[in-house]
Deep mutational scan, measured.
Amino acid sequence: DENEERIRAFALYKGIDPEKARELWERGEINKDDEEKAWREYK
């Protein structure tokens, strides 16, 4: 689903483990601007 892809995109963008990215996502600790930037680059 799209959230999974967004988490993966963010992990790649930040160079972090996707599981770590998922934890940040679930806790609401992902910066929305960074997340959008990562998503645009990923697509």
Rank of each mutant, 00 (worst) to 15 (best):
D1I: 11
D1V: 11
D1L: 12
E2R: 10
N3L: 15
N3S: 14
E4K: 05
E4V: 07
E4D: 12
E4S: 09
E4N: 08
E5V: 06
E5L: 11
E5T: 06
E5H: 09
R6E: 02
R6I: 08
R6D: 01
R6A: 05
I7H: 01
I7K: 01
I7V: 06
R8Q: 10
R8H: 10
R8W: 14
R8G: 02
R8V: 10
R8A: 08
R8D: 03
R8K: 14
R8T: 08
A9M: 06
F10H: 01
F10G: 01
F10Q: 01
F10T: 02
A11Q: 01
A11L: 01
A11V: 01
A11R: 00
A11D: 01
L12P: 00
L12S: 08
L12W: 15
L12V: 10
Y13G: 01
Y13A: 05
K14R: 08
G15D: 06
G15L: 03
I16W: 05
I16F: 04
I16L: 09
D17L: 11
D17W: 03
D17H: 11
D17Q: 08
D17N: 09
P18I: 15
P18R: 09
P18G: 05
P18T: 14
P18F: 15
E19V: 12
E19Y: 08
K20Q: 14
K20R: 13
K20C: 15
K20S: 11
K20P: 01
K20Y: 14
A21V: 08
A21W: 02
A21Q: 00
A21P: 00
R22Y: 05
R22P: 00
R22E: 02
E23W: 10
E23L: 12
E23P: 00
E23R: 08
E23D: 10
L24I: 07
L24V: 03
L24H: 04
W25G: 00
W25E: 00
W25P: 00
E26H: 10
E26K: 10
G28S: 04
G28Q: 04
G28E: 04
G28C: 10
E29Q: 10
E29W: 08
I30S: 02
I30V: 11
I30F: 11
I30T: 04
N31I: 06
N31L: 09
N31S: 15
N31V: 06
K32Y: 09
K32E: 10
K32L: 11
K32T: 09
K32R: 11
D33T: 08
D33R: 06
D33P: 04
D33L: 09
D33M: 09
D33F: 09
D34S: 03
D34Y: 03
D34A: 05
D34L: 05
D34N: 03
D34P: 01
E35R: 06
E36W: 07
E36S: 06
E36Y: 07
E36V: 07
E36M: 07
E36R: 05
E36T: 06
K37G: 06
K37V: 10
K37A: 14
K37F: 08
K37M: 12
K37N: 12
K37S: 09
A38Y: 06
A38D: 03
A38S: 11
W39P: 01
W39F: 06
W39L: 06
W39T: 01
R40C: 15
R40A: 14
E41W: 15
E41Q: 13
E41G: 05
E41K: 13
Y42A: 04
Y42H: 04
Y42I: 04
Y42S: 04
K43H: 12
K43C: 15
K43Y: 10
K43I: 14
K43P: 05
K43A: 09
